[in-house]
Amino acid sequence: MLPLRRQTAEAPTVPRAGGHRGIWADAALRLAKNKLAVAGGIILLLLVIAAIFAPFIAPKGYAEGSLEQNYATPGKRYLLGADFMGRDLLSRIIYGTRVSLTVGVVGATLATIIGVIYGSISGFYGGRIDNWMMRFVDLMYGLPTLLLIILIMVYFRSSSLVGVESNPVIKALSVIDDAIGGMFFIFIGIATTSWLTMSRLVRGMILSLKEQQFVEAALVAGASDFRIMSRHLLPNFLGPVIVAETLNIPNYIIIEAFLSFIGLGVNPPMPSWGGMISEGFRGMRSYPHLVLFPAMALSITLLAFNFLGDGLRDALDPRMR
């Protein structure tokens, strides 16, 4: 149990959970006043639109090109230049938003949800539960994710090899994998690892926070564990969580680049920013546009996420009002 040192409730500064509007509505209002955050949000919205409506926005198809125009430099004909097959780079970046944004958002969402819940439980209850849960995290950290990814890839792409052709679940997942250009296994790889650091982060902060007076006060007041975690602790550790996660989004996108670099990437001709960077970096000195523009797309996305993240952090900070 939590050690309660002082039983006398001398009205500690319990953060009021949001006045009459409620914590989230209140936060949203403050977020809307933050110009940078709004700008970040708009950029992200545009990216999402670009991803969904890529066929209408992109000047050309992602697989469409003429060999005679290969490595064309940026200019009138190709705004951002063309790649080795003479395919329009701008169009490929726009289509690439689909894979890269999905990987980033899915990674961050998985990490935050699993990590926050797991870490909160582990840190809040402490003791034996904490020990078991954290040893499991150690174990997951140690697992060679790459092996797992290769294995999953085999199941999806050549199920006859491992004799699971008739399994309806695998079959259904293969269809999904196919539909998204063979990136399903990337999600699984990210899902197995991304939440680990997050859960340790949350747990570490809770270990410190739960000893503070407002938690004790809430306990004395008879609040349930869930209420303490969600109402009192969550707002206090959300800042670093949001910052860490917005910064990890490029990591997930880069993991995809890494995988395509070592040979486990998305199936061509489907473009992805990570894949484009890993394809273009070798030609950096001859055709700088091949790596420059995808990297810029990545940076802009990251800036947008960060501004939004910072705004969210400020908006949700219980003491900032």
Binding site: I277, M284, A295, L298, S299, T301, L302
Partner: peptide, 22 residues
């Protein structure tokens, strides 16, 4: 500092390494 940090974070080492070498 925010801008610098984000820039540092979003350039994959796959591109940063060869660039620094160059």
């Amino acid at each position: 500092s925010t801008f610098l940090a984000i820039l540092g974070r979003s350039i994959p080492s796959l591109a940063l390494g060869p660039f620094l070498i160059w």
